[in-house]
């Protein structure tokens, strides 16, 4: 805010002692330069992590890594990639359907008291530990249904995990549709359903999409909801009622193999590297979409 000043500089007619002013001033300076160091303490490990994952993964990372099956101790991530995206597609479908519908009803239809409870529950749902959801999926979708480990069970469990993230953005996106839009539409004789589909949805859609992408970024990186629901398979997913492998599972299964023994650990690092890229990429998309939405609504408010 200003250049350093000497306690004896102009305006020196102080109340209180000069020594005290000096202490106050130095303490402020110390905080100004010291507190941002906490950012370094946090950011250094982040860069260290990205660096080491890249260093371990890149030497053996080739196109074949993405396109071949795991064979013995080596091979590629093809089955895991296909599995991850199949699971993610199922989960996104589930989460988007439930989350958007619930968000729309919470924002547009629900009486305030119900809406309040729904929002609290949405926040709590987002806070459930992933492994607890894994147990839920295992008990409800693997044991109780007698399906065994299946892609479908994994997808649904992951979907439940992702619901609150979609739900909360959808709720907010609908609530943020300017009320003039609603009044104008209804004044022109639109039925509520028409208003929702033709007016509110297009306005809210970019924000909802950013919520969906965010949920996907989070879902893609989860392990705990899948391990005991989707099972594992070294070949690409064969059907909804067959087990499947997935990228995070590759890391969990192979991380503690000695790095000298074949390339199991290398496979784990390649999966980690791929996940990092996908997750960062999805987050960039989230931001871009959100940015566009922000501009649009801002223009509308003006």
């Amino acid at each position: 805010m200003s250049l350093p000043s000497l306690p004896s500089a102009p305006l020196g007619d102080l109340r209180g002692s000069a020594a005290r002013w000096r202490r106050r001033h130095l303490l402020d300076r110390a905080m100004r330069w010291g507190l941002p160091l906490a950012l370094l303490v946090v950011l250094f490990p982040l860069f260290d992590m990205i660096y080491w994952i890249a260093v371990r993964a890149l030497p053996t990372f080739t196109w074949a890594t993405l396109t071949t099956d795991q064979v013995g101790l080596g091979g590629g991530l093809y089955a895991m990639i296909v599995g991850s995206f199949t699971l993610l597609a199922l989960a996104t479908g589930f989460a988007a359907a439930v989350g958007i519908a619930a968000g729309m009803y919470t924002a547009e239809y629900a009486p305030p008291s119900i809406a309040r409870w729904a929002r609290v529950a949405g926040n709590l749902l987002a806070g459930i530990p992933a492994i607890v959801l894994g147990y839920f999926g295992y008990y409800a979708l693997v044991l109780y249904t007698h399906w065994g480990y299946t892609t479908l069970a994994g997808g649904i469990t992951l979907g439940v995990f992702m619901v609150p993230f979609v739900y909360r953005t959808a709720d907010l996106a609908f609530a943020n549709v300017p009320s003039e839009q609603r009044e104008a539409a209804l004044a022109m004789g639109a039925r509520p359903g028409q208003y929702l589909v033709r007016v509110a949805l297009p306005i809210a859609l970019p924000a909802i999409l950013s919520g969906v992408f965010l949920a996907m970024a989070i879902g893609l990186g989860e392990t705990a909801p899948l391990l005991y629901t989707a099972g594992w398979s070294s070949t690409p997913v064969a059907g909804l009622f067959q087990p499947t492998s997935f990228l995070t599972g590759a890391i969990w299964n192979f991380y503690d193999y000695p790095s000298t023994e074949g390339s199991f650990q290398a496979l784990a690092f390649q999966a980690a590297f791929l996940l990092l890229i996908l997750v960062i990429g999805l987050n960039v998309v989230v931001q871009a979409v959100a940015e566009r939405y922000r501009r649009r609504t801002r223009g509308m408010m003006a």
Binding site: M1, S2, L3, S5, L6, A9, P10, L11, L14, W21, R24, H25
Partner: peptide, 10 residues
């Protein structure tokens, strides 16, 4: 008061 040596706090 906008002298660079002057601390705004003072």
């Amino acid at each position: 008061i906008y002298d660079p040596r002057v601390n705004p706090v003072l």
